[in-house]
Design a protein around this nucleic acid. Sequence first.
DNA 1: TAAGCTCGACAACACCATTGTCGAAACAGT
DNA 2: ACTGTTTCGACAATGGTGTTGTCGAGCTTA
Lengths: 156, 156
Amino acid sequence: MPADPPGFELPLRLFLGFRMLIDELHVELARQGHPDMRPMHGFVLQAIGPEGTTAVELGRRLGVSKQAAGKTVDTLEHLGYVERRSDPGDARRKIVRLTERGVDSLARSARIFEDLRAGWARTLGEDRLRALESDLRAMTAGDVFRLDVPGWFGGY
Amino acid sequence: MPADPPGFELPLRLFLGFRMLIDELHVELARQGHPDMRPMHGFVLQAIGPEGTTAVELGRRLGVSKQAAGKTVDTLEHLGYVERRSDPGDARRKIVRLTERGVDSLARSARIFEDLRAGWARTLGEDRLRALESDLRAMTAGDVFRLDVPGWFGGY
DNA sequence: TAAGCTCGACAACACCATTGTCGAAACAGT
DNA sequence: ACTGTTTCGACAATGGTGTTGTCGAGCTTA
């Protein structure tokens, strides 16, 4: 009977799978008119959501400071994915909203992810893929957002 | 018949699984006398390997500049995980080698990863876990190292 | 009204990656 | 052996990203 795979293979493969999907997503996104999207942008746009949000709240969701969130919003605003509007009900707040272009990028991302998933299903079979998703869901239940990735992995 | 899971769930769960394992590893590593290890350090120590290597070669393996690799080596040297020695056969080279402490951290990491994998096996069953690993292996075949993570995800 | 909190902006700082340059050493071709 | 090219490690300069701290303006509540 074969020995168990070494323990370090599991996290490595999980990361490689993630990275492969994200890279393929962005290759295709670039082809479809969004060449400036960075991996993190999609997560930020998702975190902003259809209702819009503020820099402080966005920072909380992403696990970074409000200044960092504001900086990211600056970039996304400059790229045309979001816009800032004054909140008529609270003069302190400036609500960050998705533009049409921002919504388009999310819609295309969703479509591309479906296609990529279908590719996995062709290789693995739908049953195996569902089992894989189900098992991952079982092991990672909980907080889907928590994207304090900037600075999490790196760091001297 | 149930609808397919949305396509974006797969990459998200892959990342969450990776992150959960890495976080649990470092909690346990800290308990076992390595509180200063950062997620990236383990990968760097693995990339250095038992034979040692140079800053330039390390940078190539990790996909970063030689300067960045050198900086990381500085930190690991300061923490006592590696040491630099002059190459007697080539006066230009300074070979980075693991110290005893560096080897110890890798040995403990391997053991902890085995334990974490065993935890997954208890929840999912050994068969399902093997299937999961096998499927991930099938989808991500290839270059296991290529950790140009610094700057890959982030970026304004 | 007054005190306290929240929001967004600005400044200063730290960290980490980059490119470019340089001298020393090894190597390859003549 | 000499010379030109390549490789290595160090240094300097730069840019991007995140942090804390501070401030004024505006809500909120006692």
